[in-house]
Design a binder for these strands. Structure first.
Length: 224
DNA sequence: AGCTGATCATAT
DNA sequence: ATATGATCAGCT
């Protein structure tokens, strides 16, 4: 079941993703001749890359959507035995220097405009090989969800432009949070300091809180 | 048990 | 270098 060509429509993408429901990661890895790591400690992105391969995503690590022709982003969502997300979801890096973009133009909004969510069992008691893929759902933010994201983004962006990035911890934000996103804490990047001067800090990323993604899954399970 | 800050691998 | 894919692991 090698699938190398990108899906040509959302329906085709959904059909491919739906066909993965209930399958184990070992089955999928074997079908695509990929080796299964012992665990994810040194292979944190392995599940996401396996699914990209299985669905025919073509973006690689370029800064374009996973399914560029469709404008759809793929996100695997690790879930626990209750079906709730175990982890926050990385969205994009946080611009730290002069930010000229509005919410409408923002990288964050564009990234989240259309997302294929694919829940995957992530309970530590289930061996990686035996973890099963759940039911995919194709999502765009509701008006309420977008309003929440926008409030967080605008408040966080304003603080960054005021030179307060060093005071922004992961506790800020209702739907979003800003956390470090780098190879390690020694990686530095220019940002705006308290007096408008250039400072060096660890690169940051925008993440969706687990409560926000849990609500996405819940809405779809209620409404079919 | 959940959250925050830190980290790991690969592609371009 | 910096984007992609995320999960780890210590602290509360």
């Amino acid at each position: 079941m090698e699938q190398l060509t990108p899906p040509q429509s959302e329906n085709e993408l959904i059909a491919r993703a739906s066909a993965l429901a209930g399958r184990t990661l070992a089955e999928l890895a074997m079908a695509h001749r990929l080796s299964l790591p012992m665990d994810l400690r040194r292979h944190k992105g392995w599940v996401g890359q396996l699914i990209e391969h299985a669905l025919g995503a073509s973006a690689g690590s370029r800064a374009i959507p996973d399914f560029a022709e469709l404008g759809v982003e793929l996100k695997t969502l690790p879930v626990d035995r209750r079906g709730l997300p175990c982890e926050s979801t990385y969205v994009c890096t946080v611009p730290l220097e002069q930010i000229n973009e509005t919410w409408q133009q923002s990288w964050l909004r564009r990234k989240l405009a259309r997302v294929l969510w694919l829940p995957i069992q992530a309970d530590k008691e289930i061996a990686l090989a035996d973890r099963r893929i759940g039911s995919a759902l194709l999502w765009s933010p509701s008006a309420a969800e977008e309003a929440m994201l926008r409030r967080d983004w605008e408040e966080l962006t304003e603080r960054i432009m005021l030179g307060e990035i060093e005071q922004i911890s992961a506790r800020f934000g209702e739907a979003l949070q800003i956390r470090p996103k780098a190879a390690n804490s020694r990686v530095l990047r220019h940002a705006i300091g308290a007096d408008g001067e250039a400072i060096l800090i660890n690169p940051r990323g925008y993440y969706l809180r687990t409560g926000f993604t849990a609500n996405i899954l819940q809405q779809y399970s209620i409404n079919g």
